[in-house]
């Protein structure tokens, strides 16, 4: 099989080089074996399969079919905090472009249920504006620069592992325009994770 392939390859190359004064060397045709080059080479035990680097031979992978949404998440805690009135499942299967129309009013009702004294928050957002932002449940991710939910300076430019998203959420729901209202409700007193994160991939700590 391998020999036949090389003969075919050699013939094709030889033909193309027929009028060129050049020595052919078919050892150079494949400079690096890969699992997708259509040839059994390297330590493969079949064409592009087997050996330490490629998928096992005979492994049939089926990726066909249609997949239907069951859960979704953009910002942390949105559905859990604001979706408590019988529409949590519906929220999870609603596309983002339709979320605001379907859920903003419900979110606002819930916000004012949690904090009836809500007027504005530390970001200067009134109840309608705040819940409009939140009802479009996508996470903003900055193309460049620091990516954080909130780090004291940058606001909603991503979500890093160490971000204390609960305190941010509590502060914005309960803290009022200056962040000083309901002081017992604006922080859960857990500022960091119980395991240290890594600066390098895959960033998460190993399992207990």
């Amino acid at each position: 099989m391998k020999t036949l392939k090389y003969i075919t390859l050699f013939a094709a190359i030889s033909t193309s080089l027929l009028f060129v004064q050049c020595k052919d060397d078919d050892d150079n045709v494949i400079t690096q074996e890969t699992c997708t080059d259509g040839i059994m080479n390297g330590e493969e035990t079949g064409v592009d399969c087997g050996g330490p680097d490629c998928q096992p031979c005979g492994l049939v992978l089926d990726f066909s079919g249609t997949y239907i949404q069951e859960d979704q998440m953009g910002r942390p805690g949105i559905n859990t905090v604001f979706g408590t009135e019988g529409f949590k499942d519906a929220f999870n299967v609603t596309v983002p472009s339709q979320m605001q129309a379907a859920f903003q009013e419900k979110f606002e009702t819930k916000l004012l249920g949690l904090n009836p004294a809500y007027t504005s928050n530390a970001l200067g957002l009134d109840a309608s504006t705040f819940t409009t932002v939140l009802s479009n449940d996508v996470l903003w991710l900055a193309q460049s620069g620091v990516t954080t939910y909130f780090n004291g300076t940058e606001i909603l430019t991503g979500r890093a592992l160490s971000d204390d998203v609960i305190d941010v959420s509590l502060l914005l729901i309960f803290g009022g325009p200056m962040g000083d209202q309901n002081p017992g409700l604006t922080s859960d007193g857990v500022p960091t994770n119980d395991a240290a994160f890594s600066n390098s991939f895959p960033y998460l700590a190993g399992p207990f």
Binding site: G65, T66, Y67, I68, Q69, E70, D71, Q72, M73, G74, P96, L123, D137, V138, L139, W140, L141, A142, Q143, S144, G145, E154, I155, L156, T157
Partner: peptide, 18 residues
């Protein structure tokens, strides 16, 4: 809060094969 910074909207979904 960062009007001049280009943003992406990103989210994750879990979908089950029918």
């Amino acid at each position: 809060f960062a009007p001049s910074t280009p943003m992406y909207n990103v989210w994750v979904e879990a979908k089950r094969k029918q």
